[in-house]
Structures are given as C-alpha cells and as structure tokens.
Design a protein around this nucleic acid. Sequence first.
DNA 1: CATCCGATCTAGACAGTGACAAGATACCAG
DNA 2: CTGGTATCTTGTCACTGTCTAGATCGGATG
Lengths: 212, 212
Amino acid sequence: MTRSICYAGDMRKRATAPIRAHPYHHGNLRRALLDAALESIAAAGPAALSLRELARRVGVSHAAPAHHFGDKAGLLTALATEGYRLLAATLREAWERTGNFLDVGVAYVRFSIEHRPYVAVMFRPELYRAGDPALVEARQAASELLYGPLRQLARDDPALDPLRAGLAAWSLAHGFAELWTTGALPPELGDDLEQAARDVLAYLFRPVPPSG
Amino acid sequence: MTRSICYAGDMRKRATAPIRAHPYHHGNLRRALLDAALESIAAAGPAALSLRELARRVGVSHAAPAHHFGDKAGLLTALATEGYRLLAATLREAWERTGNFLDVGVAYVRFSIEHRPYVAVMFRPELYRAGDPALVEARQAASELLYGPLRQLARDDPALDPLRAGLAAWSLAHGFAELWTTGALPPELGDDLEQAARDVLAYLFRPVPPSG
DNA sequence: CATCCGATCTAGACAGTGACAAGATACCAG
DNA sequence: CTGGTATCTTGTCACTGTCTAGATCGGATG
C-alpha cells in the first residue's frame, strides 16, 4: 500500500478557512474511504465491512459514501478493480525484471499475502458487480499477464498445453496463497513466505529446463 | 447431502394434535436450519446469510436459531465442521477405492464444486469460531487424508519432500477449484469439470511413475 | 464581481438484521 | 399427576444499508 491518505484536516484547507473539525468538502473522500475499507477488511474481512463505520472513521456523514460508490457493492467493485490493476502491475514488474516464470508465481503469492484485503474481495464476486466494465478489463489484463509467460515457455516444450499448464501454475499459486492466509498450513513449513512459496511452486514443471 | 429433512408438518404430530401450521416443537430444527443455510449460501454466498430469513423459511420465530447455535458464528461453525467431516469422508473413499493419488485430487476438486456452500464457509475462518474443538478435530482429520497418500508416494521417490509436495498438490487442487467457482477460468477449458481437473492436476509430478 | 449550477456532503427516515431478556409451551422423569 | 428442563416465542435494542430532501461549496459564466 504505497498511496498516501488525504484526511479531512488537510493543511490546504486550514490556510483559507478557520480551523474546522469537519470541512464540508473532504478533499479526497473517495480515496479515504477506499483506504479505510482496506484497513477494515484487513482487520475483520469483507463480510464485516460497514459503510457507516467507514464514514465515521473518515469523519463524514453516514450517507456520504453513497455519493461516491452508490452502493456497498459499488465500493467493493472499486476495490476489486483497483486490486486487479495492482496485481497486473506487480506481475508485469516481476516478469520484466526476472524473465523467470517461477518468480512470477512467487510474486503472485507475495501479492496475495501483502495485499490480502484486495484479494479477499477480488475472489468473492458475489460481493460486488462482477460485470462492471472497468473491472472486467482490469481482470483480463491481469489474467493475460499470467498466461503470457506460459506461452513463451510452451514454445520450448511442445508437450506443454499453455492453457492448462498456465492454469495449473495459476491454481497452484492461488491455492497456496489462500491456504497460507487461512492458516490451514502446518507450522513445520516455517514462516518465511518467500522461501516456502518457492519450494512449493517448484514442484510444478520440475522436468522443464532451468528457466522454470 | 444424504440426510433427510424433518419439517414442521410432520405426520407424527398430526396424529395426536389437530392440524397446526406451526407446532411448538419443530422436531429437527437444527438440521432444518443447517439445510436452509446451505441453500441460502448456494444462492447468495455466506455474507448475505440472514438468521431471520432462515427462521422464516423453516417456519419458526426469529430467535429460535439462537437456541441451537447461540450465534450466527455458531451456525457457521457447525456448517464448517460438518463440511470438514464430509470432505474427510470423500477423500477417504476416493483413496480407498482407487489408491491413486491423482484421483484424490480430483475428488477434492469435485467436492469443492458440488459442496460449494460448505467450502465457501470452511475457508473463511473470519466468519466462524476457528478455535472450536470439534472443528479443529474435523479439520485435522481432513488434512491428514491429504498428506497420508503423499507420504506413501514419498517412499518411492526419496527426492520428494512429503510436506511440500503434499502442499503443492493441495494448493493446486484448492486453487483450481476456487478459480473454477469464481468463474475466473477461460471458457476454452470447456465445462467438463472432471476432465479439466484431471488435465490440470496431471501437470504436477509428471515424472513420477504411472500411479501418480 | 455577482450569480448560477453542478458536485459534494448532511440530515432524517425506513425496513431489515443480530443479539438479548423474559415468558410461554411441550416433553419427560419421578 | 407434577416438577423441571429443553425448546420455542414475543418484545426490544442498537446497528446497518438505502432512499429522500435539503444544505453547502467551488468554479465557470455572464
């Protein structure tokens, strides 16, 4: 989470207006609500999310969120979209930096853990509007970055079906991340996520030449 | 779901009492509520679950569920426990019937799809009491059935770390099932779950002898 | 500078929810 | 028949999401 939060008591406001606890216009309420939602989800999951509590925490009235997101589902749709964009950026960076397929998988796992609030929403489509155009576009972009590297790998090994092999890799990374976050994993695995992910992911495509 | 449901208008009641729409004692309210919950979760996910609506659908007062489960979390704890027991039975059956490791994975995927309501609760520990003794026991039993077959496989191939290899298999099956249910998979994969799962799971341990 | 207009936020109200307390009913052991 | 306990009901409370109407601000237009 690299974004900075712009709260109500912003310095810009104080220069022109007398000190007020609650200026009428927040400045960047949309972002503040999203950040508050991420915090809340990190603490108690998306099911326990309360729009009114977000509003309280940010210092606006209970109906203010509705204007920016229309709906609770609207807010979660925005979060999911942002999550898919962030995921796509993460995967692209990993692929361009290492050119290594395994590292993309590890990056996927790391993203799932470090940005758990996003992922907790992204893969619960019943919570948001899964047909939203911006969301669909962001999701497809992220998906493409998962399959792209695989197509390249399939050129070297004709026995590899890029679709199913990619799906296997995606499933493996996704499942490992989910099992890790739900705490379902045995403690003998240790707490070094990076190493554990690498060890486990390596079981896929073992016979494939060094790059994998 | 092999259990039969005992609803309010049971024949036994009618013999001794005049025809009543709502006899005071339901007969098997606990099971009826669990079944209603499964239906509701199948339709709208566990987040949208409403105890009062369950009570209405079963034909009891809004506070009746509290007596059997104490709490909404209590009901979900019961569901998760039951889910883990069912999963354990499914995996055991698959392993004893086929002795094939891949088939256990396929059974896991099939369970995740066919009993989606259970799984939707089981892997969202923030929704229930994850420390509940009965639940912990059921979860460990299911987990053991995932690792057991792997230990046997590791005897043939010393290079196999049973823990991490088992985790890879579990992650792969779990991730595939989750991606399938969220509809995140490309349509080119077809709609034959059994075949798709087999194809994808087969990418793990390819070099391992035929039994895997 | 004055004015208007749209974007942003507030205030109030409503039905629905989970949880709690107190009471009613049914069943069962004695 | 009777007392006691498990089961269920009724009433209530604070809280939530959503809807309505209204207040306030900021910036563009004249």
